[in-house]
């Protein structure tokens, strides 16, 4: 059972996951998860592979709706609004909850067009506005200086780390409240990883970030809070420092000390 730490920060909750279960057909991937994620902090999801980290993350912006015959039980609230509410459109949810994927996936378009994609599909065409958003987003994702002279070039010509930062820029161009990241550094070299990690530090000033990582050093470096999942169940959720130095659950301790996996 999750144990709440008494001296938690005062940031209010933005994402409230209540008794949430998820099924791929008959196969249950998540079991009764309860989790409240605070605003403008970095929350890391860790756990062995196949434990349901991605499933939980993708439930937050309903990306798993795409899977045939998937099903859920329980609620997820963002700013006290149920994301499965029929009144709420998936499209507007995804604009509020941006996502960065494990494998960087820039569109086969120019750098500029990649960043403004979300605006274009929302019907915004004012050139000045778009230019402004491009500059702001690329600066926020620490890519501006590297690409400002070749915005019209293909995004596919960037390096792996640059592509991933472009995807971050694309996600924050929509001005989301929450940014979901699914192992954003797993395909990157250490230098690019360090860049993204410092970027996450910057971004949390303005955004709530939920990050999945299989790298415990990374979790301890970037996150304020960490949730440990095991076999679809939330085992422990606490401030990162506490969880890593003083885990309450035996399974957590076994995992972070590398005793199983």
């Amino acid at each position: 059972m999750p144990v709440e730490n008494s001296n938690q920060k005062l940031n209010p909750t933005i994402i409230q996951i209540e008794n949430f279960s998820f099924f791929y057909g008959k196969n249950q991937a998540l079991f009764d998860i309860d989790l409240s994620i605070p605003e403008k902090e970095v929350t890391a999801l860790i756990g062995p592979s196949g434990c349901g980290k991605s499933t939980l993350l993708r439930s937050i912006n309903r990306m798993n709706d795409l899977v045939d015959e998937s099903n859920h039980r329980g609620r997820i609230l963002i700013q006290d609004q149920d994301i499965h509410d029929t009144q709420l459109e998936v499209i507007s949810l995804r604009k509020r909850v941006g996502m960065v994927f494990q494998k960087s996936n820039p569109f086969p378009k120019s750098i500029y067009e990649n960043v403004v994609f979300g605006l274009r599909i929302a019907g915004k065409t004012n050139k000045n506005d778009l230019d402004e958003v491009v500059e702001r987003s690329l600066k926020a994702s620490a890519l501006w200086d590297e690409v400002k002279d070749r915005l019209k070039d293909s995004a596919l010509g960037l390096s792996g780390g640059q592509m991933q930062r472009l995807c971050i820029a694309r996600a924050i161009a929509n001005q989301p409240e929450v940014l979901l990241m699914d192992e954003p550094c797993s395909a990157l070299d250490p230098v690019a990883t360090a860049k993204i990690e410092s970027l996450i530090h910057e971004l949390k000033k303005n955004y709530t970030i939920v990050i999945v990582t299989h790298n415990m050093q990374q979790a301890s470096r970037v996150s304020d809070r960490t949730a440990f999942l095991y076999m679809g169940k939330l085992i422990e959720y606490d401030e990162t420092e506490t969880l890593f130095t003083n885990p309450k659950q035996q399974q957590t301790e076994d995992y972070i000390t590398g005793r199983f996996g």
């Binding site: 990306m63 795409l66 507007s92 941006g98 996502m99 996936n105 086969p108 994609f117 274009r120 996600a171």
Partner: peptide
């Protein structure tokens, strides 16, 4: 992966196909 990228930006299915 690309499809999810488009949907993740808030594109509808038709927008994803079209754009």
């Amino acid at each position: 992966n690309i499809r999810e990228g488009a949907l993740g930006c808030g594109a509808s299915k038709w927008q994803m196909i079209q754009k």
